[in-house]
Computed example of a mutant assay.
Amino acid sequence: MATMGLLDYQDSQGTRGVLFEIGVCAGRYFSVLMRSGHRSGDPVIGLDPFLWIDEATVNDRLHANVPGAPYRFINAYSTAYTARTLLDEFDGKLARFISVDGSHEASDVLWDLRLTEEILHPDGFVAVDDFFNPVAIGVNEGVHRFFNNPRALVPFAMFSNKLFLCRPHKLESFKKAIAEYAESDQSEDRPRFFIEHRNRGDKAIEQTLWGTKFYSFG
C-alpha cells in the first residue's frame, strides 16, 4: 500500500518512465507495478531467471489477478546486464520505479544497486527488499557496501522490510509524500505507528543511514 501511495504521488507529478523489478518471484509485488503501469501507460518490465517458480505459472497468476495490464519479462540474471544494455531493453527510457528483490547475496545486491543508480529517472524511487531481514543478511551487506562510496541515491523511508531510496534532490519531496500516505491510510499498524510517534517530534520517527535522515515506519 505504501508503494501504491508513492506511485500515485509520481502520477500526480507527471513523472513518466519504466516500472522495473529485479526478481519477480511469484509476482505479488510485481502486480503493484502492473497496476500503476496500466493506469499511466508506462512500460512494466520484470527481470528474473525464474528458478523458484516457472515463468508460465507466474504469467497465469498475473493474468488472473491483474487482467488486461500489459507487462514484459526478461528471463535472465541481472548480472548479465549493464546499465547500457538494460536501457536498450527499455527503448532508452529511464525507470521511474525500481524494485530490487533479486539475489540476496551481497555482491549481487551491490551489482543491482549500481545498475539502479544508473538507470533511475531523476524523479524516480527505489524499493530494496529485505533490508534488516535477519535471514537475508547479504542484503544489508550489499546496501552498506554500496553506500560506502559517495552515491547519487539516499534513503527516504524504511517501511516494514523495504528500504526506499531516491535522488538527493527528491529527498524531502518523497518524505512528504510517504508521510501524506500515512495520514491518509490509518487502517494499517505502521501508518498509525508513524503518526502517533510523529506527534512527539521528528526525532521519534527519523533514523540516520550513511549521513541521511529518513523516516522509519517500524
Rank of each mutant, 00 (worst) to 15 (best):
E117H: 04
A95P: 15
G124C: 05
A177S: 10
R84H: 14
Y77E: 07
A64N: 10
R200C: 09
K162M: 08
V128S: 03
D88M: 09
A179N: 08
Y29I: 12
S184D: 10
A83F: 06
G41T: 07
A177R: 08
S184C: 06
A83D: 12
A179I: 12
D42G: 03
I53Q: 12
L113M: 15
G102I: 03
T3E: 11
W210C: 12
F20V: 04
T85W: 07
L33P: 09
I178L: 08
Y9E: 12
D130I: 04
E196N: 14
V58D: 05
G37P: 14
V135Q: 04
R145A: 11
E55Q: 14
S40F: 05
P67G: 07
L62N: 14
R16Y: 00
R192L: 13
A2Q: 13
P122A: 04
S184M: 11
L19K: 07
Q10K: 06
A182E: 02
L209Y: 12
L163N: 01
A106T: 09
P43I: 03
T57E: 11
T79F: 13
G46S: 11
W111S: 10
D8A: 15
R198C: 09
D129W: 08
E188P: 06
M34P: 06
G102K: 11
Q207V: 12
P70N: 09
H104C: 00
A69W: 09
Q13F: 01
K162T: 05
P43A: 05
A2F: 14
Y181K: 13
H169Y: 01
N65D: 14
W210H: 15
E118T: 00
G37R: 15
M4W: 11
L87H: 09
G142K: 12
S107I: 03
V128W: 03
F30R: 10
V100P: 04
R145Y: 00
H169T: 12
F50M: 04
S103A: 01
K176Q: 13
G14E: 05
F90H: 06
P49Y: 04
T57F: 08
T15S: 03
G201Y: 06
F217M: 09
D48L: 05
E180G: 02
S12P: 04
A127Q: 05
V126T: 07
F90V: 08
N148Q: 13
A95W: 13
R28L: 09
P122V: 10
S31P: 15
R192I: 15
S160E: 12
P43M: 02
G27E: 03
G5K: 14
F159S: 00
K213G: 07
W52Q: 11
L163K: 09
F159L: 13
G41N: 08
V18R: 04
S103K: 13
D129T: 01
E105H: 13
R96A: 04
Q207W: 10
L6Q: 10
G41E: 06
